[in-house]
């Protein structure tokens, strides 16, 4: 974004809106077991918050996600997902079989924890990738 839509009204609205959007995103990710929601949806809402900041403040926003940060988030999300899979391989289970993870809980609760872990990984990957796509599509003409 070379020219952000910065103005006093947009700035105030953005400051008011973003914390609630973030809280709602965390709720959607964490409550995906009992209600509609999960990693994909929550990650998209998180990316919407970041893109809102990008639209209002442009690339030089003080808070928000940098490009390198978004790339790291995307890589980290896929790594978390695959890592939990390998972790269950390490504890003599099948790949992505969360029931064998050594947590002091009953098996079903351990599965819930494993599912929550990969939902967080998916949400990180989706957030990072959507922010990266937005950045790539709006970065043209930046060099000149």
């Amino acid at each position: 974004m070379r020219t952000p839509f910065g103005s006093a009204v947009l700035d105030a609205a953005c400051r008011l809106l973003v914390p609630f959007v973030l809280i709602f995103a965390v709720y959607v990710i964490a409550h995906g077991h009992d209600s509609p929601g999960g990693g994909f949806q929550g990650g998209t809402i998180l990316a919407a918050a970041v893109i809102l900041i990008r639209l209002v403040h442009g690339q030089d926003a003080i808070w928000g996600l940098t490009r390198v940060g978004a790339l790291r988030l995307a890589c980290g999300g896929v790594a978390v997902f695959a890592g939990i899979g390998f972790l269950s391989l390490l504890f003599a289970g099948n790949y992505l079989d969360y029931g064998v993870l050594p947590l002091p809980l009953e098996t079903v609760k351990v599965r819930v924890m494993g599912t929550l872990g990969i939902e967080i990984g998916v949400a990180m990957a989706v957030t990072g990738v959507l922010v990266l796509i937005f950045d790539a599509l709006t970065a043209w003409g930046e060099e000149d």
Binding site: Q59, L65, R67, A74, V129, L130
Partner: peptide, 29 residues
């Protein structure tokens, strides 16, 4: 779902590489 996540990750990387975006340009990282 792991496959799907890999697909969207690859799509994000493809976007960056097709357009040749400089990573360091954004923000104060």
């Amino acid at each position: 779902t792991l496959g799907e996540t890999t697909v969207i990750f690859t799509a994000g990387l493809a976007c960056l590489l097709i357009l040749g975006v400089r990573l360091g340009a954004g923000g104060d990282d």
